[in-house]
Design a protein around this nucleic acid. Sequence first.
DNA 1: GCTCAACTTGCATGGCCCTG
DNA 2: CAGGGCCATGCAAGTTGAGC
Length: 364
Amino acid sequence: MCETHGRNLRRIVTEADWRDTYVEAESPMENGFYVTELEKRRAATWADALSAFLTSHVDYKGLLARFANDDGDEFELPLTDAWGETYSRKQYARALALQRQMGGGERPSGGEAVAAWGSPATAMLTFTASSVPNGERLPPVEHTDALHDAFSYDGVRDTLRNTMEYHLGLDADEWGYWLQAEPHGMGGDGSGMNACYSHLHVGVYFDAADLDLEVVGPEFERVIDKHVEECEYASFSAHDYRNTDYLNDSDGCISLNAGVENMGSYLAAYMGGYTEELLDKPVEYLAWGAIYWSAARRRTSRSKIVTEAIKADACEQRAESSESNQTDAHGEAVVWNDGRGPDVVCACCNSGWAIDQDRLDEPV
DNA sequence: GCTCAACTTGCATGGCCCTG
DNA sequence: CAGGGCCATGCAAGTTGAGC
């Protein structure tokens, strides 16, 4: 167990894993680095990690941050970690906001969101890996690392991008995704062998105005193939998409919908279904949470487009709400942004979502 | 379709300064 | 130099534009 300053256990690793790191650190380094200090990181048991995780979470209870303005007025806000109700509710609100921006709908603040795309559609991709490949049980962090690394670093996301932008011919602003890691075995769903281990859902949102969904479905097979190829513990038998009706079957590793409602409500149900206090969650969720907490992995990540859409929804709500000082609607005032993504962005929230890019000329 | 470095963001507290 | 008050940033995981 790693004890530095009460930070998270960094890894739940095997002793062999540590030895590799240790030996490498002792040998001469190639790039001019030299070792001044060695810190041993021991493997921890899953049970110890779970205990440390829950203890850390409980430590936040009653913790306040105090703020003050220039006039000396002070106020306090409760500090939270990423495992409490506040966090869950925020993710839940983001899922609903995204659904509104893509498909239209009423905002909590009263206004009506206009669907941004002509024909929004979604695809849900599910990536799994065996926790007992070849009959031997894997340390949970190695299993989780393999899943995420395949997607983020070993080309699965790149293949998804190629599929959307090259094979389907969409522009970069006509598709986006929400990646959500989830535990196996919630509610005794029969995935016994992998219970408490993680799997990934990648919710892909795209504008299908010029596309035939019957043709789109098979295009995602290359993404699944890439995952099976890159992820050491993934097998094709667990991702067998043959004999799947992508538009009508929802339990395969590829599932399409001509609309955003299913995806939105799926994400919202997942987020909203577990908004209770952490200690009240099922043990499978807690064990799974201990993996992410100790390994410093992110459970959720979104592409830029999706993040911008959510930001814009919040911006519109602030403009409508009497509780906010903001009076300009999203996009009412715009500024030029030289950074990544859209050039013309809202002056209030910096998001370029649903903003006509011809409204400003590039400054000299 | 691959690669990579620049860029963004999810998640999170460390450390300086003053007083006694 | 211990202890309390107070303030703002850091780390690294993950995303993307652009070159090839």
